[in-house]
Amino acid sequence: MYTKDEFKQRFRAMDTEELILNASRPLTDEAMEATKEILAERGYTGDAAREKTKEVIRAHLQGSGVTRNCDYCGATLHGAVPAQGQKFCSHRCRTQSALAVIALDFAPETIAEHARQLRNGRCPRCQRQGEVVEVRSIRRMVSVVILSVEDRYDLCCCRGCYEKELRSALIVSGLLGWWSFKGLFANIGVVMDGLESLRRRDAPDPSPALIAHASLDLAQKSLAQTPA
């Protein structure tokens, strides 16, 4: 793992926009501290740093690349969903992108508090309360001769619902994931990752994925309350 000073050496070559977009991904504490210090060196601290971050991320969310990729999730397009000069792989990504722009206006403290409320609230799937609600990942592979398909998706639910879905995905991968040359090797990683996820315990604080989900949930609620 790099130290903060090593991250600073790596990040200094980035321009400010690239540095901010890089920091929008999950980073280690050392990498985030390095990013903050470089932004401070460039005159972006406090409110100035927050406003510049919002400006860069908003422009990124509302922009469109020249590649055949979704402007929100980056997936390869197999038929685009257009919207205001942008292109998305699905209506879900188009909606998520619009919500992400709205979410930029919420303070980080407000989003973090909402994430904690979601974490300690009812499970969106089974409506039970008392288990930790989190956003957790699922991987599943199906392969036949020359065709190999790996699904990756996130679930926001309690631990019980997640483990039920994860076991189902492991059964599918265990039975159907091996029957191609690619699957014979790639499915090992899928199955091992699933088994590790079953053993992995949740961290004491909301994950970055839950915080991102909370920001979109706040944006959705804000949109629903806006008069038509």
Rank of each mutant, 00 (worst) to 15 (best):
residue 153 Y to D: 03
residue 144 V to L: 14
residue 153 Y to A: 09
residue 181 F to W: 15
residue 179 W to I: 02
residue 159 R to V: 14
residue 167 R to S: 03
residue 155 L to W: 11
residue 144 V to E: 11
residue 164 K to H: 11
residue 180 S to W: 14
residue 157 C to N: 06
residue 184 L to Y: 15
residue 146 I to P: 11
residue 158 C to S: 03
residue 160 G to K: 13
residue 173 S to A: 09
residue 184 L to V: 03
residue 155 L to C: 02
residue 153 Y to K: 11
residue 145 V to R: 13
residue 155 L to M: 15
residue 161 C to T: 00
residue 172 V to W: 09
residue 179 W to T: 12
residue 159 R to I: 12
residue 157 C to Q: 04
residue 176 L to V: 01
residue 154 D to C: 11
residue 156 C to M: 15
residue 156 C to N: 04
residue 163 E to S: 05
residue 163 E to W: 05
residue 164 K to W: 07
residue 175 L to F: 13
residue 153 Y to V: 05
residue 171 I to G: 07
residue 163 E to P: 02
residue 180 S to Q: 07
residue 176 L to R: 15
residue 169 A to F: 00
residue 145 V to H: 06
residue 183 G to Y: 06
residue 170 L to I: 06
residue 147 L to H: 10
residue 180 S to L: 13
residue 161 C to S: 04
residue 180 S to E: 11
residue 164 K to A: 12
residue 157 C to K: 05
residue 147 L to E: 10
residue 145 V to I: 10
residue 172 V to L: 10
residue 162 Y to M: 00
residue 145 V to M: 13
residue 170 L to A: 01
residue 150 E to N: 12
residue 146 I to K: 09
residue 174 G to I: 05
residue 184 L to A: 14
residue 182 K to F: 15
residue 158 C to Q: 05
residue 182 K to A: 14
residue 149 V to N: 13
residue 181 F to A: 15
residue 159 R to A: 04
residue 161 C to N: 00
residue 171 I to E: 14
residue 179 W to E: 03
residue 170 L to K: 04
residue 150 E to R: 03
residue 172 V to R: 09
residue 153 Y to G: 08
residue 154 D to K: 07
residue 151 D to A: 13
residue 168 S to K: 08
residue 164 K to E: 12
residue 164 K to S: 08
